[in-house]
Simulated assay, not measured.
Amino acid sequence: MLGFDERRYGSVLGGAVSLRPQIEKLAAEIVAAEPNTLFLVGSGGSYAAMWPYEYLLTTRSALPVRSVIAAELVAAGNRQLTERSVVLLSSLSGTTRETVAAAEYCRARGVRTIGMTGDPNSPLAQVVDHVLVNPADDETASESYDIQLTLLSAAILHSLGEFDTYPRFAEQMDGIEAVLRAVQEQADPVAASFAARHSTTEYHMLVGSGPLWGFTYNYSMCILEEMQWLRTTRVHGAEFFHGSLELVERDTSLILFIGEDETRPLMDRVRGFAERYSDSVTVFDSADYALAGIDAEFRGLLGPLVMDSVTIRLSKHLEQVRDHPLDLRRYYRVVDY
Rank of each mutant, 00 (worst) to 15 (best):
L256T: 00
G259V: 09
F215S: 06
G210C: 11
I223K: 03
L224Q: 14
W213K: 04
A238C: 08
E275Q: 15
Y217Q: 13
E239L: 05
T233W: 07
V207Q: 03
P265V: 08
F240M: 03
L245N: 09
I223Y: 06
F215R: 03
W229C: 10
L247E: 01
W213P: 04
V248A: 09
R234K: 14
A274G: 06
E225S: 09
I255D: 03
T263G: 02
L247C: 04
F273V: 14
M227W: 05
E262I: 15
Y217H: 10
Y217K: 12
Q228I: 00
G214D: 01
P211S: 15
L266G: 02
V270Y: 03
T233Y: 06
E249T: 06
Y219H: 05
T201C: 04
W213A: 13
E262K: 15
G243W: 00
G214E: 00
P265G: 11
E202T: 13
L256V: 12
E249D: 10
V207E: 03
S199H: 08
Y203A: 00
G208A: 02
D268Q: 13
G272E: 14
G208V: 01
E226P: 02
H236K: 09
E202S: 13
W229M: 12
V248S: 00
L212K: 01
G272F: 09
W213Y: 12
T216L: 06
D261E: 15
M221G: 05
F215P: 04
F215I: 07
F273S: 06
L256I: 11
V207S: 03
Y277D: 04
E249I: 00
G259P: 09
Y203S: 02
T252K: 00
D268L: 14
D268R: 13
F257I: 11
P265S: 08
D251T: 06
E202V: 07
H204Q: 10
G214Y: 02
L245T: 02
L224C: 08
P211I: 15
R269S: 13
A274S: 09
V207L: 01
R269E: 08
T200D: 09
L256F: 03
S199E: 08
E226C: 02
L266K: 12
S253W: 00
I258P: 09
L254N: 04
H204Y: 13
M227P: 11
T232L: 11
G214A: 01
T263M: 08
G259Y: 12
E262H: 15
V270S: 02
Q228H: 09
L206N: 03
G214V: 06
V235H: 04
A274K: 05
E202N: 10
G210K: 12
T252A: 05
C222W: 00
